[in-house]
């Protein structure tokens, strides 16, 4: 059984952080402050991992970790204790399992489409036209219908392709996924230790395999990786890269300045190369770099080192530094 407490302990940091930051990341909340916290604590990889986790359940789990002295707390910030770090070392198996998760795989959207596609192919294999589809969701049905009509001529090939993909999975993962399927006169029995997370991770394994076979119908069903950057933010960042200033973007897009700066932060956090020179002069960067090298990491500390600059300038510097740090790992 994958326990929530263990997962949270693995995902939390040795550095203090506000616990709700991680909750925002794993439930997929796309705001600059949440994403920045995720970047700072190397948690962005788990963006959306537990989309359905409620805040009370999350906070209760954090409380249990505190009570068990696996976490410690001051000033509303929590981080792992030595015991917590030792426990994490024991959990390396689970850490490896979690590593197959990747938010860009878009597994949450893929899951219902995949199971419906299997059902559609199954019923078609028996020439059945009347059956109860496993999803009543209009979007899911439309998507799979379009996919199926593009695939129809080669039903046997599509099945064969899935068989090949499954044979490349770990046998336990393949068996588990098959136990979740519904098809013609077949209802999967589910597994004893089934959970939405285990399902999601198994489907991520499946998607990694599908990704390695770009020509298959299953690749088409999946639709490829997605960008975590919202389209509006991507557009703002593209225009910024073409030379528009923040003020020009505010005027051109009729958006508030806070929206534009939010877009730019998101873009930088997700890896867009926004030149730091556009935000800070070389001298200003040097001052901040010295402060950073001296261990000053927070917005307040950096602002004290360079009074008079604006929030976005300091935040962009922090984002660049954390990205560099994470890349070096």
């Amino acid at each position: 059984m994958i326990s929530l407490d263990d997962i949270l302990l693995l995902l939390l940091d040795d550095q203090p952080q506000r616990p709700l930051g991680l909750w925002g990341v794993i439930t997929g909340r796309k705001t600059a402050s949440i994403m920045f916290a995720g970047l700072q604590h190397q948690q962005l990889h788990y963006f959306g991992l537990l989309a359905g986790l409620s805040k009370p359940d999350y906070l209760a789990a954090v409380q249990r970790l505190l009570t068990a002295k696996l976490l410690q707390q001051t000033d509303e910030q929590v981080w792992r204790t030595a015991t917590g770090r030792a426990r994490c070392a024991q959990l390396h198996g689970m850490a490896a399992t979690l590593a197959s998760y990747d938010p860009e795989l878009n597994v949450q959207q893929f899951a219902p489409r995949f199971f419906l596609a299997v059902q559609v192919l199954s019923e078609a294999s028996y020439q059945q036209r009347q059956y109860v589809p496993l999803s009543a969701d209009w979007q899911v049905q439309q998507y799979v219908r379009r996919w199926y009509h593009g695939t129809r001529a080669e039903l046997a090939d599509t099945v064969q392709e899935l068989t090949v993909i499954f044979s490349q999975l770990h046998p336990a993962t393949a068996d588990y996924l098959a136990m979740l399927m519904i098809g013609h006169e077949y209802v999967g029995s589910g597994a004893d230790q089934d959970s939405p997370l285990r399902r999601e991770l198994a489907l991520c394994d499946l998607l990694h395999t599908i990704e390695s076979r770009p020509a298959s119908a299953w690749q088409r069903l999946w639709g490829g990786r997605i960008s975590l950057l919202p389209p509006a933010a991507a557009q703002t960042s593209a225009e910024f890269l073409r030379g528009a200033s923040v003020q020009e973007l505010v005027a051109r897009k009729h958006r508030r300045i806070s929206t534009i700066t939010e877009h730019l932060q998101l873009a930088a956090i997700m890896g867009q190369q926004l030149p730091l020179d556009r935000f800070l002069s070389v001298q200003q960067q040097a001052v901040l770099a010295t402060a950073w090298a001296g261990g000053q990491r927070t917005y307040q500390e950096l602002l004290a080192a360079l009074p008079g600059v604006e929030f976005l300038q300091v935040r962009m510097f922090q984002i660049m530094m954390y990205r560099r740090q994470n890349n070096a790992r």
């Binding site: 299997v118 294999s125 028996y126 068989t163 046998p171 996924l177 098959a178 006169e185």
Partner: peptide, 16 residues
Amino acid sequence: RDFTGWQVIFKQIFNT
């Protein structure tokens, strides 16, 4: 029928 193993399940599901 109880189905065990993905290959057996695939045979049922896809009529192969």
